[in-house]
């Protein structure tokens, strides 16, 4: 067992601004799955078993412990709790074999949970994703403060999860907080 201590991008920061709470969720392990040529059926079958259903374009499947969303044609991002799934990519590769290419993505993203009554007002100051009319599971890749992010409408009311590039976590967090202040 190694003794290196991981740190999250922003130390798990959480801010409450007006009705909005913006929290860095450092407990999500991520890995991408891309079906190989001829492995599409097998990949979808395995994902269905894992997630309960295979999310199509613009959708996510919220499921415990693994959840997932559609990234591109024949490509998905799978997430799971870091505590139990730090080696998610290895676990998925074991499951999928040569049917799919799996790539560890945990380090590439910062994850924010944005919750609160003013959610639609706040999000419309940030991106073109129509959060006001998105329903649970709707997922859109969009641009927030020049950064390519995923916006996922979670099951809970007034909750979106935002995945942004980890190296720009500070800039993204600053943008989220600014928008929250604007609508507070």
């Amino acid at each position: 067992m190694h003794d290196l201590k991981p740190i999250s991008a922003l130390g798990g920061v959480s801010d409450t601004i007006g009705t909005m709470t913006i929290t860095e969720n450092s407990g999500v392990a991520l890995a991408s799955v891309a079906a190989r040529m001829g492995g599409e059926v097998a990949t979808k079958k395995a994902l269905k078993k894992l997630l309960g259903d295979v999310p199509g374009p613009g959708r996510s499947q919220q499921h415990d412990p693994e959840s997932g969303f559609w990234m591109g044609p024949d490509q998905w991002m799978i997430g799971a709790p870091m505590d139990t799934h730090e080696l998610l990519a290895d676990q998925l590769k074991t499951l999928l074999g040569d049917a799919a290419s799996v790539t560890e993505q945990s380090g590439a993203w910062v994850v924010f949970d944005v919750v609160g009554a003013a959610l639609p007002d706040m999000m419309e100051r940030l991106c073109a994703a129509p959060v006001r009319t998105m329903v649970a599971g709707d997922t859109q890749r969009t641009v927030i403060h020049h950064l390519s992010c995923f916006v996922i409408r979670q099951n809970g009311a007034d909750h979106v999860r935002i995945l942004g590039p980890r190296a720009s976590a500070g800039s993204l967090h600053h943008a989220l907080n600014g928008a929250a202040h604007s609508v507070a």
Partner: peptide, 15 residues
């Protein structure tokens, strides 16, 4: 289009 190849950026995934 028929090459079996999958791409994804991992620039920020690794230090």
């Amino acid at each position: 289009p028929d090459m079996d190849v999958q791409l994804i950026s991992t620039t920020e995934a690794w230090a």
